[in-house]
Design a binder for these strands. Structure first.
Lengths: 217, 217
DNA sequence: CTCCTCTTGTGAATAATTTCACAATCTCAA
DNA sequence: TTGAGATTGTGAAATTATTCACAAGAGGAG
């Protein structure tokens, strides 16, 4: 009696997944332009990778193209959505209604990627209440109740560094299994919880380093 | 007659530089706690890398530690500032005074990294004028003049995708040699111009992928 | 149906990055 | 001054990621 075969057992470079959003957006654009078929050459050029890297990246998830022809835009788009978990809406709750939290809450780019900010949380009672029609700032104590009610899956941590560990623990207690952490600290969480770190200054300091090195200050 | 020897000829992994901001912040903290000496073991633990990776990363820039003792916090901090080009202030101009641009302009974390936002630029005349005591939104046409006057080095592109290429060209014409691009497009620029791409959704889509894969949606 | 052209999919080769393991050498104590 | 204990710095090994190069189809023309 055959077991259900595991979805995918292949391992692939971590960087592969980080290129998928690029592919997704390129394909979205081709779709808008009513282009039905695209070659790895063409698409790779557009996103700035080599054609063989694009093909290799896709190959980890099956034979998604048509030999001799290219990739079917609509089909590949659907596959990539599936791979990135965008085939269903992901609901985010932002903890920390400071400047960073509010900016993220208002970011218009989430929608096209199947992401949705449904609530903010803060300890500061002065911030509690509706932000606009869609969005309310809740007391931090409502984390578990609202997660349940709104179906939140991802907790976004935009709190000061000193608070981050404590808040992460609250989020885990409240049932979150995925944290997107903007605070510049490593978090201690149970192994089943996934943490993604975001460090906004890395990019600009990389630039600064190149300026220093290339132009000697 | 000896030529001036080139500052550094070693090549190192690109990821090395992206770990330096982590080291920088850990060291800053040790400094505040009046810890004068720290081992690679201790510091690596704190930032979440292996001790040998930390030592290797630092070794590309010379022998920065003391065998048998560890790293001198103040000395290493100074060195890392130098490597990241933080030994002098870097001045940023943000092009695109939309939500993202304004959020970055108000980000309080830049200061401790030697970064300073000195101006915003926009085509929309409704946005022109002072934002607060420190900061003004200028017409895009003033890009070159203000870059010169304020000593701006890095242009931050927070404009819509469709505008990004054109705006990049304006920035290059205005004399910028470093672009930090938040628009999800690859930019065509002359080879001497450095572009750093920032893609805010990569992190959260990575989470989404892990959710889909680990918990099967 | 066959041939020719095109482009994918993928093992193998190459390149890049990380980890290992230990010699070098510093500190401190007696 | 010497020896014990600690921790760096770094070639070499191991691992991971990218690129190459070509066989395996797919599609279209005749």
């Amino acid at each position: 009696m055959p077991e259900r075969t595991p979805e995918e057992l292949v391992t692939f470079p971590k960087a592969t997944i980080s290129r998928f959003p690029l592919y997704f957006r390129a394909l979205t654009e081709y779709n808008h332009q009513n282009i039905g078929l695209v070659s790895s050459e063409e698409m790779a050029q557009k996103v700035g990778v080599t054609p063989s890297q694009l093909r290799k990246d896709l190959s980890y998830f099956g034979s998604l193209g048509i030999r001799g022809a290219g990739y079917d835009v609509a089909y590949l788009l659907a596959k990539i959505k599936e791979i990135l978990g965008m085939d269903r809406q992901r609901r985010l709750g932002i903890i920390g209604a400071g400047r960073m939290g509010m900016a993220l809450a208002g970011y218009s780019g989430f929608k096209q990627h199947g992401l949705e900010v449904l609530a903010l949380f803060d300890i500061d009672r002065a911030k509690w209440g509706p932000v606009n029609e869609q969005l309310t700032v809740f007391p931090l104590s409502e984390l578990a109740a609202q997660r349940e009610k709104l179906g939140l899956e991802i907790a976004v941590l935009t709190v000061p560094k000193a608070e981050a560990q404590k808040v992460a623990e609250l989020a885990v207690e409240a049932g979150f299994r995925a944290l997107w952490n903007f605070a510049p600290v490593r978090l201690e969480v149970p192994p089943e919880v996934i943490v993604q770190y975001e460090d906004i200054v890395v990019g600009v300091l990389t630039l600064s380093h190149h300026l220093a090195r290339k132009f000697g200050t």
